[in-house]
Amino acid sequence: MHGPAQAAWLLVALCAATGAYCLLRMRSRIEEQRRTAGGEALMGFGMAVMAVPAAVLAPPRWAWLAYAAVFGAAVLHTGWAARADRHHLHHLVGAFAMAYMSVAMAAAPGAHAGHVGHAGHADAGVPVLTGALLLYFAGYVLWSGARLAPRAVASAAGGTAVLGWADRSEVALACRLSMGIGMVAMLLTL
């Protein structure tokens, strides 16, 4: 990731922690939590790997192509699931964004020497697709943050029953919010 190493490491930590929590959610008693947790864990860990500073890990071109293949498969799987459940549309956009960033890095001159942020778009401005994805994820961050605030207040006031870590919907929403913030950060550096 292009930019200060400290910011990249914070993004790595945030995304890895989110991915780990999503793995815990796969053990939830609530079916909706289990259904989406695997894809969200893949996104969290994938974002963590992509955000590792280039000075530490500079993947070769084939690694970016492998990322693109994994997230391309996630796009197909999520697209199939989105036919029946509208909730999967956000996951579809997220998987598409990850595949898009992977392809951009594989196609970038010197992709073997860096991470997100070296795609060579600085002279031409922001590509339309990158801008559209930035707008989508910025809107998603604002929307999910607004949804999270009332849940956090109700939870702090004792408005919900005591649930296990894997069953807390407000924590799951906070994880989605943090992944949205991470996606904005990664798209900004593309």
Rank of each mutant, 00 (worst) to 15 (best):
residue 1 M to T: 13
residue 2 H to Y: 15
residue 4 P to H: 14
residue 11 L to V: 01
residue 12 V to G: 00
residue 12 V to D: 00
residue 13 A to F: 12
residue 16 A to T: 10
residue 18 T to A: 15
residue 19 G to D: 02
residue 20 A to Q: 05
residue 21 Y to W: 13
residue 23 L to V: 14
residue 23 L to H: 00
residue 23 L to E: 01
residue 23 L to D: 00
residue 25 R to P: 00
residue 25 R to F: 01
residue 26 M to R: 10
residue 26 M to W: 07
residue 26 M to D: 02
residue 27 R to E: 08
residue 27 R to A: 14
residue 31 E to D: 11
residue 31 E to P: 00
residue 32 E to T: 12
residue 32 E to G: 08
residue 33 Q to L: 04
residue 33 Q to T: 02
residue 34 R to P: 07
residue 34 R to M: 06
residue 35 R to E: 13
residue 37 A to M: 07
residue 39 G to C: 09
residue 39 G to K: 05
residue 39 G to Y: 13
residue 41 A to I: 07
residue 41 A to R: 06
residue 43 M to R: 04
residue 44 G to F: 05
residue 45 F to V: 10
residue 46 G to Y: 02
residue 47 M to N: 07
residue 50 M to C: 10
residue 51 A to D: 05
residue 52 V to P: 01
residue 59 P to R: 05
residue 59 P to A: 07
residue 61 R to L: 10
residue 61 R to C: 03
residue 62 W to C: 11
residue 65 L to P: 04
residue 67 Y to I: 00
residue 68 A to H: 01
residue 69 A to F: 06
residue 73 A to M: 08
residue 73 A to H: 04
residue 74 A to I: 02
residue 74 A to R: 00
residue 80 W to Y: 13
residue 85 D to G: 09
residue 86 R to T: 13
residue 86 R to P: 11
residue 87 H to D: 14
residue 89 L to I: 14
residue 91 H to L: 13
residue 92 L to M: 04
residue 92 L to Q: 03
residue 93 V to W: 07
residue 93 V to H: 08
residue 95 A to C: 13
residue 95 A to N: 12
residue 96 F to E: 00
residue 97 A to Q: 04
residue 97 A to K: 02
residue 99 A to M: 13
residue 101 M to T: 09
residue 102 S to E: 04
residue 104 A to V: 07
residue 105 M to L: 10
residue 105 M to T: 04
residue 105 M to F: 00
residue 106 A to E: 05
residue 107 A to R: 13
residue 109 P to Y: 08
residue 110 G to S: 05
residue 112 H to F: 12
residue 113 A to G: 14
residue 115 H to Q: 15
residue 117 G to E: 07
residue 118 H to R: 14
residue 120 G to Y: 05
residue 121 H to Y: 15
residue 123 D to Q: 14
residue 123 D to K: 09
residue 124 A to M: 10
residue 124 A to H: 12
residue 125 G to W: 06
residue 125 G to S: 04
residue 126 V to H: 03
residue 129 L to F: 09
residue 130 T to L: 07
residue 131 G to D: 09
residue 132 A to R: 11
residue 134 L to K: 08
residue 135 L to Y: 13
residue 139 G to N: 12
residue 140 Y to W: 14
residue 144 S to L: 11
residue 146 A to T: 06
residue 147 R to A: 10
residue 148 L to C: 06
residue 152 A to V: 15
residue 153 V to N: 00
residue 161 A to N: 03
residue 163 L to V: 15
residue 164 G to D: 15
residue 165 W to C: 05
residue 166 A to L: 04
residue 167 D to F: 05
residue 167 D to S: 05
residue 167 D to I: 08
residue 168 R to V: 10
residue 168 R to T: 03
residue 168 R to W: 02
residue 174 A to S: 12
residue 175 C to E: 01
residue 178 S to C: 14
residue 179 M to H: 01
residue 180 G to F: 06
residue 181 I to Y: 02
residue 186 M to F: 02
residue 188 L to P: 01
residue 188 L to I: 03
